[in-house]
Simulated assay, not measured.
Amino acid sequence: MRQLYPQIEPHESGHLDVGDGHHIYYERCGTPGAKPAVFLHGGPGAGISPLHRRLFDPDRYDLILFDQRGCGRSRPHAEVDRNSSWHLVSDIERLRTSFGFERWLLLGGSWGSTLALAYAQAHPSHVTELVLRGIFLGDQASLDWFYSFGASEIFPDQWEAFCAAIPPEERHDLVAAYDRRLTTLEGAAQLRLARIWSQWEAATVSLLPDPARERSAQDPDHAIAVAKIEAHFFANKCWLRPGQLLEDAHLLADIPGTIVHGRYDICCSARNAWELHRRWARSRLHLVEGAGHVFSEPGITDRLIEATDQYAASWAGNRELMAKTN
């Protein structure tokens, strides 16, 4: 199986003022002038990691990574004001123009796949390819699966702890109940709820338990950003109309793409990947056996790097052909 590329460091990093009081942290890695690409992290509310740089061949990609509004090293931290799906789509476009890219590849997993689809459907002429992992459609069915009934049947022990933080009379809408508290509480009370929210996610994302991931999910900055921003986005249905990303899949008609989804992904049903593939003619679907949600599952890593390698080779071949023609 393909492995992550060796560790690299960004050759440029900084903060971009995107307006509304937000400054997003970005990194530029790889080779300037090579194939342009942008990585979209999950959550919403998580952030980029040095591991994400390693999904791309640094000799063949000019790669941008960034922490979305309120995430990671972006400022202000965990801010939900002026922070919506469409603010983030605008930020991606601002990054593209800032770096002078005409078109680029997008790689996004989980919430990152949602954001990649929203951007590509809004700006199809600026997208060369999509590489999507762990498809989350931001629709009511996806939210119900993870926060109402579905994942709860597979992780009843973790689900009981997640529900216990909310009074019984409010458990009919756990997302709204958490959102109300996370946006009004402060200090220790807010952190306690944020850690419970973050623990539910961390315990369910991989095929097998990962104690290190669960410990890192309890980090105060991480837990508050993930819980507060996710609850905010999900309480607002990600600012998508019902079924939007599937209904508008025809807008991807000229964009080739690769969909990678773990067969045993508990966070995001494999049905999401299947339905998207059915509506997107130029997509290739890989349902990875023996894998859950996270990109570090060996089979998922293998397929993601296969895709980025293939699209880099196609880009290089096209450039060589154009050079000979000219």
Rank of each mutant, 00 (worst) to 15 (best):
L4K: 09
Y5I: 01
E12C: 09
G19N: 07
G21C: 10
H23V: 06
T31D: 10
K35F: 06
A37L: 03
G42C: 02
P44M: 14
G47Q: 13
I48A: 06
I48Q: 00
R54T: 14
D57S: 12
P58R: 14
L63A: 09
L63S: 07
R73Q: 12
P76K: 04
H77D: 08
R82N: 13
S85M: 10
W86T: 06
L95Q: 03
A118T: 14
H126R: 05
F136G: 07
L137N: 12
Y147H: 11
F149P: 05
F149G: 05
E153T: 03
P156L: 15
A161R: 12
C163E: 15
C163H: 11
E169R: 14
A177M: 06
T184R: 15
A188G: 11
I196L: 07
Q199P: 09
V205Q: 11
L208E: 15
A212C: 07
R215D: 15
R215Q: 15
S216G: 12
S216A: 14
A223N: 13
A225C: 09
V226L: 10
A227N: 05
A227I: 06
A231R: 02
H232A: 15
F233A: 02
C238Y: 13
G243A: 03
D254L: 13
I255T: 08
I259G: 04
G262M: 14
C267F: 15
A270C: 09
N272T: 04
N272W: 09
R279M: 15
L285S: 00
E289F: 10
G290R: 05
G290C: 08
G290P: 14
V294K: 08
V294P: 05
I300D: 07
I300S: 06
D302G: 04
T308R: 03
Q310T: 04
K324S: 15
